[in-house]
């Protein structure tokens, strides 16, 4: 039963909404419309005049072969980050759920990465992966493996995927743990009595019952990988070597801030927005159907 709250004062609801609306207007609607406006203009080099050019910026980007490469890298990067961070988080959450002794400490430790600024996290990863000073980097080279993410594009991509996933594991872990603890113990016991071993119980009972959580995290993690990993990539590889770790969001920054091509950069942010909207819609339309909400 839902109860409707009745306000006597006609103004109060609007007042209560105002801060949220203001924040949305100032920090989302306004810059987003600016991006849309700029994406159909070309500015001169000094930013003094701008000229309306219809979709010229868009056609230029879409016909740029590099852009297709960026799309591919973004897809690999985002999917890997989402899958890796969710898989690791689910594994850790299942362990924490199974043996809850000392869980407070365990959980706190797992949440720390989330509280870390991307730049700081990147420095930590550097201490691990740097071929000269990083512990693992030196070890790999000592073992005869030619490790240098500053020269090898695949290695660089692997490293940023690891770093970006690592930061998101905390977040996923909290949600997965809450989801696991919401599954009634007796349902799992019933499955055990019905003859299902631990692995089968996980895949036929636990995993389907977690699907609302998994779906939610898939959406959140994709958005994270698309938009919020800029700091990590910037600090670790600067999109390099070459363009090996240049994702869409990094290229937006590269073209806009570094190359000062605001039109191209804005057109890309608009494209990025569209891609995210399409992706999220697809997820809601098709993946959510398989989700069981109790």
């Amino acid at each position: 039963m839902q109860r409707r709250v009745i306000f006597d004062n006609k103004l109060l609801p609007y007042l209560l909404l105002a801060p949220q609306v203001a924040v949305t207007l100032i920090f989302f609607i306004w810059p987003a419309s600016q991006a849309v406006w700029q994406s159909v203009h070309i500015q001169d080099a000094f930013g003094l005049r701008s000229e309306f050019v219809w979709f010229e910026n868009f056609t230029a980007i879409l016909s740029d072969p590099n852009y297709v490469g960026t799309l591919r890298i973004t897809a690999v990067f985002s999917l890997s980050v989402a899958v890796l961070s969710m898989a690791v988080a689910l594994l850790l959450a299942a362990l924490a759920d199974a043996k809850i002794k000392g869980a407070a400490v365990y959980k706190t430790l797992l949440i720390w990465p989330y509280a870390l600024a991307p730049a700081v996290a990147a420095v930590l990863w550097m201490f691990i992966f740097n071929p000269e000073i990083g512990s693992l980097g030196r070890l790999l080279n000592a073992m005869g493996y030619n490790w240098d993410y500053r020269l090898n594009g695949d290695q660089a991509l692997t490293m940023v995927i690891l770093a970006a996933s690592w930061k998101q594991v905390s977040y996923n872990f909290i949600f997965f743990l809450a989801g696991l603890q919401a599954i009634p113990r007796s349902v799992l016991e019933a499955a055990n009595i019905d003859g299902a071993g631990p692995v089968r119980r996980f895949w036929t009972i636990t995993f389907p019952l977690l699907s609302p959580t998994t779906f939610f995290l898939l959406v959140v993690d994709m958005v994270y990988a698309f938009c919020e990993t800029f700091g990590t990539i910037h600090a670790l590889t600067h999109g390099g070597p070459g363009k090996a770790t240049e994702t869409l969001i990094f290229r937006v920054y590269q073209d806009g801030v570094v190359n000062n091509d605001l039109g191209a950069s804005s057109a890309q942010s608009v494209l990025l927005m569209v891609i995210l909207i399409v992706l999220t819609t697809i997820q809601f339309r098709f993946v959510e159907r398989k989700v069981h909400y109790s």
Binding site: P184, S186, V187, E189, A190, A191, I193, D194, I205, P208, L209, S211, H292, S294
Partner: peptide, 15 residues
């Protein structure tokens, strides 16, 4: 153990 159990809260598989 070849037993079956009926729980107080039924413990049916909701999905």
């Amino acid at each position: 153990r070849d037993i079956a159990m009926v729980f107080q809260n039924y413990a049916l598989y909701p999905h």
